[in-house]
Simulated assay, not measured.
Amino acid sequence: MSILFWRRTDLDGLERLSLQIKSDRVTAVSTVISTEAGGLRLDHRWVLTPDWRAQSVEIERWDAQGHEQLHLARVGPAEWAVNGTARPDLDGAEEPDLSVTPFCNTFPIRRVPQAVGSSLTLDTAFIDGETLTVTRSRQRYERQGAGRLRFVDLGLFEGFTADLEVDDEGLPTTYAGLFERVPN
């Protein structure tokens, strides 16, 4: 089991994630804490296939307004259910992307070919950590060099780009402007 920490660089926040990689699945359990706008705690629990494709994520969020939960689960190769209800508007989304963590960027990053200039474009089921809403969105990851990629938003936040540095597992160490790994 590995323990990873990320610090927000755009606001006051910290994430602690425990990652367990087994031959039959990958699991992650994490807590995000933010002191912005009255404070936020968000717990997320992931189940992934051995090749790092998300099968489900359970999210619980606490803030000044109360407590909310969300469960997103893959119900087909690229079909999703939210809280047990099929969401045809998400059909074709390859992976979830949770706004408050760099962890889920790892899923597509691991599939980008290693050659400089290679890229991967995919649709995601974007989860806004502040509102726990799920919307389909489009993204591209471009290989810049060994351990370096550029994220390009082609959907909800079209025009947003960020450079990422990743470790040998594809886990972000730096997500420019948003997150940085904290040594432990």
Rank of each mutant, 00 (worst) to 15 (best):
G147W: 00
A64L: 10
W46T: 09
V29D: 12
E95F: 07
T85L: 10
N105Q: 05
L178T: 13
D123T: 07
G38K: 06
A176G: 08
V100W: 04
V166P: 03
V75D: 02
V152H: 10
T9M: 02
R74D: 00
L120M: 08
W46D: 09
A73Q: 13
W80P: 04
F160T: 13
E60W: 03
L120P: 00
R74K: 14
A78D: 14
E130M: 12
L98A: 07
L11Y: 11
S137T: 12
E180W: 01
I109E: 00
S30R: 05
L17K: 08
M1D: 11
S99N: 06
S119I: 04
R148N: 04
E94M: 12
L122S: 10
S99M: 03
Y175K: 09
N105W: 01
R7W: 01
M1E: 13
I3R: 15
I109R: 11
L14A: 09
G84C: 04
F126H: 09
R87C: 07
V82A: 08
D128P: 03
A28K: 05
H44Y: 14
W80R: 11
T135K: 13
L17D: 05
D128V: 06
E158P: 06
Q139G: 05
D123P: 01
E180Q: 14
D97C: 08
L132I: 04
Q114I: 15
G159M: 01
T124D: 08
V152P: 02
F107W: 09
V134A: 07
S137L: 02
W80I: 10
G155M: 00
A28Q: 03
L42A: 12
L132K: 11
N105G: 05
R16I: 04
I21W: 02
S18Y: 06
R136S: 11
N105M: 03
T101P: 04
S18F: 06
R53H: 14
R111C: 02
L14G: 09
S2N: 15
D51I: 12
V75I: 13
P50R: 05
T173R: 09
P108N: 11
R181G: 06
E142L: 14
R136W: 02
L14I: 13
